[in-house]
Design a protein around this nucleic acid. Sequence first.
DNA 1: TCCTTATCGATGCAATTGCATCTATATATA
DNA 2: TATATATAGATGCAATTGCATCGATAAGGA
Lengths: 151, 151
Amino acid sequence: MTKKSPSPEAIAAWARLVRVSRQLVERTEDALKANGLPPLAWYDVLHELAEAGEGGLRPFELIDRVLLAQYNVSRLLARLEADGLVEKLPVSDDGRGQTVRITANGREMRRRIWAIYGASIAELLGARLSAEELRTLAALLGRLRYPPTSD
Amino acid sequence: MTKKSPSPEAIAAWARLVRVSRQLVERTEDALKANGLPPLAWYDVLHELAEAGEGGLRPFELIDRVLLAQYNVSRLLARLEADGLVEKLPVSDDGRGQTVRITANGREMRRRIWAIYGASIAELLGARLSAEELRTLAALLGRLRYPPTSD
DNA sequence: TCCTTATCGATGCAATTGCATCTATATATA
DNA sequence: TATATATAGATGCAATTGCATCGATAAGGA
């Protein structure tokens, strides 16, 4: 069982992928900070909760969706609740759990973040690659997902 | 001055880029941890220092190369030094600064990390995309770099 | 030369993250 | 039903990160 060594193409692509994605995220986070807005993770959670509608989501459902560790979700939700952006409701059929629902303030915050976030995406991706190239990029990246998924 | 709104293609590509790169890095970090090895950032620094050779590098040179904040580099170097992987030398023509050089132990650690890191890249990229696709991916990502560079 | 400003690198302190574990409830097994 | 095991979510503590600032030396301008 020999460990495989990566091809030069794989190494080059890896380096680009890691560097570029970090830079883009960092630039976006900076833009949010510059506008007095919270980090991207807040947006992700608010976005998922907004999608989920009135029914809300259980924290454990959020975990898979936002790709955060359990304790991070737990604490992030605590901050969001403290800021009145979400509310926690007991759930009738499971005494351990709770349902988290976005509030009106949460929706408003989500809009404000998106104004900056969306503009950042437009600037960093939309302005640099054509729609066709963006589709190609997304397709290639899709093949790297784990676990491997059929698009 | 209207803020632009991103195209659906840009949004989709962004989502893929951020999620996939996070997953891949995380899986690689996990592999390192599972083998009792330090984080990727250690590798990056050791790699740059190994490339730099006997002359070593000044910390501020490291900062641009590894894309870390000044205080992170400062502290990371302190840890590397404490572990005997690098050594700090005073630099003659600048009393403020120092030169950082990789040690023999540092080179050895770099090799050990690469055994896992390289295998991870081979598995996560090399096994999933062809050389041609990897080149396409790298080229598209290259166009997203900041500041815009002529390849 | 004297004074102001810029650069190099370190660090105190607060916030965040990671790890391990805890409490509480639910589910499975006998 | 009694007991063991699994799952939901929170949290104490240590390590790391981010922010602001500091001390020290260099460089630039009067």
